[in-house]
């Protein structure tokens, strides 16, 4: 027991080091004055020089703004579609077309991105030929593609949340006189709201981060942030990308940190309530 426990624990520590060394080194070198990125210029560092370069980089700012708009659109639409699919899969039992929906909805999660990207572009080309829409590839086609693979993740999150909930909650509401639509808005939706929220965040992140699929369905003038970054780093390391990465990592860490603290607070309150209830037991 003991030896294996130690082995696993050491592996955990080393694994976490492995996960964080690259991120930390990227953050450290974002404050380096040297253009040579990995050579520490002790005389003039730390410096915020590359952050200054970054905020004046018109191309990056434009791309970031486009990425944000696409990610918000894609996440919002994916949440609606994914919730519908999740509710259908978790609550409708065996309906006609269930296998089709279940199969299609999880496939984009594992599908190699190059294939998804290629197939979506070929679809848009074929549609433009047949119905004259979309007129060309750009922000709209990127959003459509992102909605498609993001909804898969939302579906999975919503479906597993619903699976954890007793179906008799909805039956009880119906038994007390609520019609199906009302049951959904008064009971089901409030229960899955946390899942929908995390589904939205997940979808936002995936859309914001996607490169491969986006490259296929993007057109001239619709470069997202990952596309710009990719074209920059393909030919080597550039210090302002370090600065960009640092900002993103800190934003995400802050967000996750706050949500963790909040969840812990909730958890603790819940535990206290449970103790109170147990004390008041008849």
């Amino acid at each position: 027991m003991r030896t294996r426990g130690w082995f696993a624990r050491i592996a955990l520590v080393l694994g976490l080091v492995f996960l964080y060394v690259p991120i930390v080194s990227m953050i450290v070198f974002s404050f380096n004055n040297s253009r040579l990125v990995t050579v520490w210029d002790a005389a003039h560092s730390p410096t915020l020089r590359w952050y200054g370069v970054l905020v004046h980089n018109e191309q990056i700012l434009t791309a970031a703004w486009l990425s944000i708009r696409i990610a918000v659109t894609a996440a919002s639409a994916a949440v609606v579609l994914g919730t519908l699919a999740g509710v259908a899969l978790a609550r409708f039992g065996a309906f006609r077309g269930r296998l089709l929906l279940a199969g299609m909805v999880t496939a984009p999660i594992v599908m190699p991105e190059v294939i998804t990207g290629l197939s979506l572009l070929l679809l848009f080309v074929a549609m433009a030929q047949l119905v004259g829409w979309p007129r060309g590839v750009g922000a709209v086609t990127i959003a459509l593609a992102h909605i498609t693979f993001c909804m898969a993740y939302v579906t999975v999150v919503v479906q597993s949340r619903l699976a954890g909930f007793d179906e008799s909650l909805e039956e009880a509401a119906m038994d007390l006189g609520a019609r199906p639509l009302k049951v959904f808005f008064r009971i089901t939706l409030p229960l899955i709201l946390p899942a929908i929220a995390s589904g939205w965040l997940l979808a936002f992140t995936l859309s914001w981060d996607d490169l491969v699929i986006t490259q296929f369905v993007a057109g001239p003038g619709s470069s997202t942030l990952p596309m710009v970054v990719f074209s920059k780093v393909r030919f080597g390391v550039t210090p302002d990308v370090n600065a960009l990465a640092t900002i993103l990592v800190l934003l995400v860490a802050a967000g996750i940190g706050i949500s963790t603290v909040w969840m812990r607070y909730q958890q603790r309150r819940r535990e206290r309530d449970l103790q109170l209830a147990a004390a008041a037991n008849l």
Binding site: L19, Y20, V21, P22, I23, S25, M26, F29, V37, T38, T205, W208, D209, L211, P226, V229, F230, V233, G236, V237, V241, N242, L244, A245, L248, V249, V252, A253, G255, I256
Partner: peptide, 17 residues
């Protein structure tokens, strides 16, 4: 946490290393 930060930038970090 790393999963929530950019995949592309994490791969990029390895170039520097």
């Amino acid at each position: 946490l790393p999963f929530w930060t950019s995949f592309l930038l994490r791969v990029y970090a390895w170039i520097g290393l």
